[in-house]
């Protein structure tokens, strides 16, 4: 928020505008909708964990412009995302890639499910009915259940 105060001083350096700003919108609503969908998956690099769809920072505005230009030029979503990752690295996309280095990330939750289910199943398979109480034990249980504990 402090940046906004600074923005007043550098009117030329910063332009505050959200993704929905009518001034930047593409004329074709279908293309605009596609651009907006892409925005949600692109990180504003200088912001704190915001997508360029949410961010009001200048860099986010630049990225939005780039994406809109490419959408207008008829490039596919994959091409646009590749263009962005080539330029800024994997960091720029909000969705991590499906790759070996991200195996733990994508597979971890499901590994927990499989592990848990496996443990549950072995537990269920190995179940052995509790052996019956011996007469002495039964007698003690009977006595214990009848005495007043207080």
């Amino acid at each position: 928020m402090r940046l906004k105060a600074v923005a007043a001083i550098f009117a030329g350096l910063l332009c505050l505008a959200a993704a929905a700003d009518p001034a930047d919108r593409l004329a074709d609503p279908a293309q605009e909708a596609r651009a907006r969908a892409i925005f949600q998956d692109v990180r504003c690099l200088v912001c704190q964990n915001e997508s360029i769809d949410d961010s009001e920072a200048e860099l986010a505005g630049d990225l939005r412009r780039t994406v809109r230009e490419q959408v207008k030029a008829g490039r596919s979503d994959a091409e646009i995302k590749r263009f962005l990752t080539d330029r800024y690295g994997e960091f720029v996309l909000m969705t991590p890639r499906f790759s070996w280095v991200n195996l733990a990330l994508w597979g971890g939750p499901f590994a927990v499910v499989i592990l848990g289910a496996g443990l549950l199943l072995t537990r269920l398979r190995n179940r052995t009915g509790e052996p019956e109480l011996s007469p002495e034990e039964a007698e003690r249980v009977r006595r214990l259940s009848q005495t007043d504990p207080t």
Partner: peptide, 16 residues
């Protein structure tokens, strides 16, 4: 019932 009572009974005995 027998197995269940055995289970709970043993726990009662252990507690006692």
């Amino acid at each position: 019932r027998k197995s269940a009572e055995a289970e709970a009974g043993r726990r009662l005995l252990a507690a006692a």
